[in-house]
Design a protein around this nucleic acid. Structure first.
Length: 224
DNA sequence: AGCTGATCATAT
DNA sequence: ATATGATCAGCT
Protein backbone atom coordinates (compact mmCIF):
# COMPACT_ATOMS: atom_id res chain seq x y z
CA UNK A 1 0.00 0.00 0.00
CA UNK A 2 1.39 3.34 -1.09
CA UNK A 3 0.43 6.36 0.95
CA UNK A 4 0.70 9.75 -0.67
CA UNK A 5 2.06 12.55 1.51
CA UNK A 6 -0.80 14.55 3.03
CA UNK A 7 -1.30 17.99 1.48
CA UNK A 8 -2.70 19.60 4.61
CA UNK A 9 -2.92 19.11 8.34
CA UNK A 10 -6.56 18.11 7.90
CA UNK A 11 -5.68 15.41 5.42
CA UNK A 12 -3.01 14.12 7.79
CA UNK A 13 -5.52 14.05 10.64
CA UNK A 14 -8.06 12.22 8.47
CA UNK A 15 -5.48 9.61 7.53
CA UNK A 16 -4.51 9.24 11.17
CA UNK A 17 -8.14 8.77 12.20
CA UNK A 18 -8.42 5.91 9.72
CA UNK A 19 -5.74 3.91 11.52
CA UNK A 20 -6.93 4.74 15.05
CA UNK A 21 -8.08 1.57 16.79
CA UNK A 22 -6.22 -0.71 14.42
CA UNK A 23 -3.49 -3.07 15.56
CA UNK A 24 0.11 -2.78 14.50
CA UNK A 25 -0.20 -6.06 12.67
CA UNK A 26 -3.15 -4.81 10.64
CA UNK A 27 -1.06 -1.83 9.55
CA UNK A 28 2.01 -3.96 8.88
CA UNK A 29 0.05 -6.35 6.66
CA UNK A 30 -1.22 -3.44 4.58
CA UNK A 31 2.38 -2.29 4.17
CA UNK A 32 3.53 -5.82 3.35
CA UNK A 33 5.86 -5.78 6.35
CA UNK A 34 6.55 -8.56 8.86
CA UNK A 35 5.79 -7.82 12.49
CA UNK A 36 8.75 -8.69 14.72
CA UNK A 37 8.20 -10.78 17.87
CA UNK A 38 9.38 -7.95 20.08
CA UNK A 39 11.18 -4.62 19.88
CA UNK A 40 14.47 -5.65 21.45
CA UNK A 41 16.24 -5.43 18.10
CA UNK A 42 13.58 -3.35 16.40
CA UNK A 43 13.27 -0.29 18.61
CA UNK A 44 12.29 2.07 15.83
CA UNK A 45 9.94 -0.32 14.07
CA UNK A 46 6.65 1.22 15.20
CA UNK A 47 7.77 4.73 14.32
CA UNK A 48 8.85 3.75 10.83
CA UNK A 49 5.75 1.64 10.23
CA UNK A 50 3.49 4.55 11.09
CA UNK A 51 5.59 7.03 9.11
CA UNK A 52 5.10 4.92 6.00
CA UNK A 53 1.47 4.38 6.78
CA UNK A 54 0.79 8.11 6.96
CA UNK A 55 2.96 9.05 3.97
CA UNK A 56 5.90 10.70 5.71
CA UNK A 57 8.56 11.94 3.34
CA UNK A 58 11.75 12.66 5.23
CA UNK A 59 13.30 9.23 5.71
CA UNK A 60 16.52 9.73 7.62
CA UNK A 61 16.98 13.28 6.33
CA UNK A 62 17.12 16.15 8.83
CA UNK A 63 13.67 17.40 7.86
CA UNK A 64 10.16 17.29 9.30
CA UNK A 65 8.38 14.01 8.57
CA UNK A 66 5.75 15.87 6.59
CA UNK A 67 7.95 18.42 4.93
CA UNK A 68 5.64 20.78 3.09
CA UNK A 69 3.14 21.02 5.93
CA UNK A 70 5.92 21.28 8.55
CA UNK A 71 4.68 18.54 10.85
CA UNK A 72 6.78 16.12 12.87
CA UNK A 73 5.41 12.64 13.69
CA UNK A 74 6.08 11.14 17.12
CA UNK A 75 4.70 7.87 18.40
CA UNK A 76 3.81 7.96 22.08
CA UNK A 77 4.10 4.61 23.86
CA UNK A 78 1.42 4.19 26.54
CA UNK A 79 1.61 1.89 29.56
CA UNK A 80 -1.31 -0.13 30.95
CA UNK A 81 -2.66 3.01 32.60
CA UNK A 82 -2.73 4.87 29.31
CA UNK A 83 0.05 7.26 30.28
CA UNK A 84 3.38 7.72 28.50
CA UNK A 85 5.82 4.93 29.21
CA UNK A 86 8.97 6.50 27.78
CA UNK A 87 10.56 9.87 27.22
CA UNK A 88 10.52 11.27 23.68
CA UNK A 89 13.71 11.83 21.74
CA UNK A 90 13.84 15.26 20.11
CA UNK A 91 17.22 15.84 18.49
CA UNK A 92 20.97 15.54 18.87
CA UNK A 93 23.11 18.35 20.22
CA UNK A 94 26.12 19.83 18.48
CA UNK A 95 28.60 19.97 21.37
CA UNK A 96 31.35 21.84 19.53
CA UNK A 97 29.33 24.82 18.31
CA UNK A 98 26.31 25.02 20.59
CA UNK A 99 23.27 26.94 19.43
CA UNK A 100 23.01 30.22 21.27
CA UNK A 101 19.39 31.29 20.93
CA UNK A 102 16.15 29.41 21.67
CA UNK A 103 14.38 31.17 18.81
CA UNK A 104 16.72 29.58 16.28
CA UNK A 105 17.12 26.25 18.02
CA UNK A 106 16.48 22.83 16.54
CA UNK A 107 14.41 21.89 19.60
CA UNK A 108 12.01 24.79 19.12
CA UNK A 109 11.64 24.06 15.42
CA UNK A 110 11.16 20.33 15.90
CA UNK A 111 8.48 20.87 18.51
CA UNK A 112 6.65 23.70 16.73
CA UNK A 113 4.12 21.26 15.22
CA UNK A 114 3.93 17.61 16.26
CA UNK A 115 1.45 14.87 15.45
CA UNK A 116 1.43 12.63 18.52
CA UNK A 117 0.30 9.12 17.76
CA UNK A 118 -0.38 7.12 20.94
CA UNK A 119 0.33 3.39 20.73
CA UNK A 120 -0.29 0.71 23.34
CA UNK A 121 3.05 -0.33 24.87
CA UNK A 122 2.08 -2.52 27.80
CA UNK A 123 4.61 -5.36 27.66
CA UNK A 124 1.79 -7.82 28.39
CA UNK A 125 0.29 -7.06 24.96
CA UNK A 126 2.07 -8.81 22.07
CA UNK A 127 3.56 -6.31 19.64
CA UNK A 128 1.28 -7.45 16.81
CA UNK A 129 -1.86 -6.88 18.92
CA UNK A 130 -1.04 -3.39 20.17
CA UNK A 131 -3.56 -0.79 19.08
CA UNK A 132 -3.06 2.70 17.74
CA UNK A 133 -4.85 5.52 19.49
CA UNK A 134 -6.26 8.85 18.34
CA UNK A 135 -3.71 11.28 17.01
CA UNK A 136 -3.13 14.67 18.60
CA UNK A 137 -1.88 17.61 16.56
CA UNK A 138 0.01 19.77 19.01
CA UNK A 139 2.02 22.96 19.34
CA UNK A 140 3.43 24.12 22.68
CA UNK A 141 1.17 26.58 24.46
CA UNK A 142 2.68 29.64 26.11
CA UNK A 143 3.33 27.98 29.45
CA UNK A 144 4.79 24.88 27.87
CA UNK A 145 7.07 26.89 25.62
CA UNK A 146 8.35 29.04 28.46
CA UNK A 147 9.34 25.96 30.45
CA UNK A 148 10.94 24.36 27.42
CA UNK A 149 12.83 27.56 26.75
CA UNK A 150 14.05 27.85 30.33
CA UNK A 151 15.25 24.24 30.34
CA UNK A 152 16.95 24.66 26.99
CA UNK A 153 18.72 27.86 28.02
CA UNK A 154 19.93 26.41 31.30
CA UNK A 155 21.32 23.29 29.63
CA UNK A 156 22.80 25.05 26.62
CA UNK A 157 24.46 27.57 28.94
CA UNK A 158 26.30 24.70 30.58
CA UNK A 159 27.43 23.35 27.21
CA UNK A 160 28.56 26.82 26.16
CA UNK A 161 30.55 27.08 29.40
CA UNK A 162 32.25 23.75 28.69
CA UNK A 163 30.36 22.05 31.54
CA UNK A 164 28.82 19.28 29.48
CA UNK A 165 30.35 16.56 31.67
CA UNK A 166 28.46 18.03 34.61
CA UNK A 167 25.12 17.69 32.83
CA UNK A 168 22.88 14.93 34.13
CA UNK A 169 19.44 13.70 33.11
CA UNK A 170 18.16 14.96 36.48
CA UNK A 171 18.15 18.52 35.17
CA UNK A 172 15.27 20.14 33.33
CA UNK A 173 11.53 20.19 33.98
CA UNK A 174 10.32 19.21 30.50
CA UNK A 175 13.58 18.87 28.55
CA UNK A 176 16.48 16.72 29.64
CA UNK A 177 19.81 15.77 28.09
CA UNK A 178 20.77 12.10 27.90
CA UNK A 179 23.24 10.03 25.88
CA UNK A 180 22.17 9.25 22.33
CA UNK A 181 24.63 6.77 20.91
CA UNK A 182 25.17 3.24 19.71
CA UNK A 183 26.85 2.49 23.02
CA UNK A 184 29.04 4.10 25.66
CA UNK A 185 32.16 3.64 23.53
CA UNK A 186 30.88 5.65 20.57
CA UNK A 187 32.22 9.13 21.20
CA UNK A 188 32.04 12.51 19.53
CA UNK A 189 33.80 15.84 19.94
CA UNK A 190 32.97 18.30 22.65
CA UNK A 191 34.55 21.31 24.35
CA UNK A 192 35.69 21.43 27.97
CA UNK A 193 35.83 24.45 30.29
CA UNK A 194 39.36 25.25 29.08
CA UNK A 195 38.05 25.51 25.54
CA UNK A 196 39.88 22.33 24.56
CA UNK A 197 38.46 19.64 22.31
CA UNK A 198 37.52 16.45 24.14
CA UNK A 199 35.87 13.15 23.26
CA UNK A 200 32.55 12.60 24.98
CA UNK A 201 29.27 10.78 24.63
CA UNK A 202 26.92 12.11 21.99
CA UNK A 203 23.93 13.71 23.73
CA UNK A 204 20.38 14.38 22.73
CA UNK A 205 17.41 16.32 24.02
CA UNK A 206 14.47 14.29 25.31
CA UNK A 207 11.01 15.30 26.49
CA UNK A 208 10.05 14.04 29.91
CA UNK A 209 6.81 12.14 30.27
CA UNK A 210 5.45 14.88 32.53
CA UNK A 211 5.03 17.01 29.41
CA UNK A 212 3.61 14.30 27.14
CA UNK A 213 1.25 13.26 29.94
CA UNK A 214 0.05 16.86 30.11
CA UNK A 215 -0.48 16.93 26.35
CA UNK A 216 -2.66 13.81 26.55
CA UNK A 217 -4.68 15.29 29.40
CA UNK A 218 -5.18 18.60 27.59
CA UNK A 219 -6.48 16.74 24.58
CA UNK A 220 -8.87 14.54 26.54
CA UNK A 221 -10.33 17.54 28.30
CA UNK A 222 -10.92 19.24 24.97
CA UNK A 223 -12.98 16.28 23.70
CA UNK A 224 -15.18 16.06 26.76
C1' DA B 1 7.54 1.82 39.77
C1' DG B 2 10.05 5.55 37.76
C1' DC B 3 14.10 7.27 36.02
C1' DT B 4 18.76 7.65 34.10
C1' DG B 5 22.35 6.05 31.44
C1' DA B 6 23.06 2.58 27.82
C1' DT B 7 21.73 0.51 23.82
C1' DC B 8 19.62 -1.37 18.97
C1' DA B 9 18.64 -0.85 13.77
C1' DT B 10 19.03 1.51 9.30
C1' DA B 11 20.39 5.08 5.92
C1' DT B 12 23.60 8.57 4.41
C1' DA C 1 30.04 10.07 12.69
C1' DT C 2 25.46 11.81 11.94
C1' DA C 3 20.83 11.67 10.85
C1' DT C 4 16.42 9.03 11.38
C1' DG C 5 13.29 5.87 14.53
C1' DA C 6 13.23 4.87 19.65
C1' DT C 7 13.29 1.21 23.89
C1' DC C 8 16.11 -1.47 27.17
C1' DA C 9 17.54 -2.56 31.73
C1' DG C 10 19.72 -1.78 36.08
C1' DC C 11 19.58 1.17 40.01
C1' DT C 12 17.34 3.81 43.47
Amino acid sequence: MVTRPPLSENELLENASKIAGKTLQQIAIKQGIETPEDQHRHKGWIGQLLEHSLGATAGSLPEPDFLHIGVELKTLPLNHLGTPKESTYVCAINLTSPESRWENSLVKHKLSRVLWLPVEADPDIPLAARRIGSAILWSPDKDQESVLRRDWEELMDMIAMGELEQITAHQGQYLQIRPKASNSKALCKGINSEGEEILTLPRGFYLRTILTRQILIQHDLKIK
